[in-house]
Amino acid sequence: MPTSAQPLVELENVARYFDVSPPWLNRILERQRRQVLKAVDGVSFSVAKGETLGLVGESGCGKSTVARLIVGLYRPTRGEIRFAGRRIDAAGPDPAVRRAMQMIFQDPYASLNPRWRVADIVAEPIRAHGLARSSRDINARVGSLLEQVGLASADGAKYPHQFSGGQRQRISIARALATQPAFLICDEPTSALDVSVQAQVLNLMRRLQRELGLSYLFISHNLAVVHHVADRVGAMYLGRIVELAPVNVLFTSPQHPYTRMLLAAVPDLTRTGMPRTAVAGEVPNPLDPPKGCAFHPRCPYADERCRREVPRLKHVAGDADVTVACHAVEEGRLAQEAFTAA
């Protein structure tokens, strides 16, 4: 559990809107309105040193946008992002922060330049930040990075297409580690991989965290994977965090109806032939989200207040580590004993 006073990464009420309006001419001619996609709408959380924060949610919930906001691929529409106490959302790319924060992407086939040799891919951050000068130093560093992620230093001479998906993800990790970062943002790092390879990559990431004292923001739609790696977990729905809790708490006594639904939808290998609990409805169109609590059309506990008022993330009575954004939880309308872990 995190204990250090200052969190490594802090997000405060961060939002990112995208203008997805049709072109100006179409708006005039076809009388279409401006459309704004609120991909992330007021997200706050912090990641402590050495901690792994998991972020779960279905496609389109904004979890990948959060990742890209933190690494600076997008600028936030509002809110503050701090790294080690320094604001990083407004300033241009600060090399020191860039070095301390790296990202691992989802698709191991798209995240490596197909025309580059592996050694050049891994050496790119070293060269860009001038971390080693002579080509002998660079080669030595690349070799040790490749060995650190379980590849041979001779693999540097090959091209990405000569590797399998899992090995490519190892190359991605080696590239991310090249600048000796403190914080790694992992956007669905294993969802394109086969399970046996996923296990290899997850184990590697845990080993590296232990050895290098890394902090992770681990984004995934797969709850079992997040359960496996995270210390704390945030569940996102339509651009907002609906529940943020330590991993054991969230997986044994989820509070928010959406978190419960997500957990119930996870297939359970131990009960063959048993259908999982399906939930009616689908994620609404994010361009036209429901008023009030975005989950209310699918929520069995929704009442008038839920349809009207956006719930805010609040501490749950009795547990300082758990925050939930739900009127029903706040008012105690939700029977606590209703959810019992299998």
Partner: peptide, 24 residues
Amino acid sequence: RGLMGSIPSIAADRESLAQIDGTM
């Protein structure tokens, strides 16, 4: 056996996953 062991589960504890070394 290896395949089953490498599937993370929310029911199991969070020990390191069994893994099959190498690739297909």
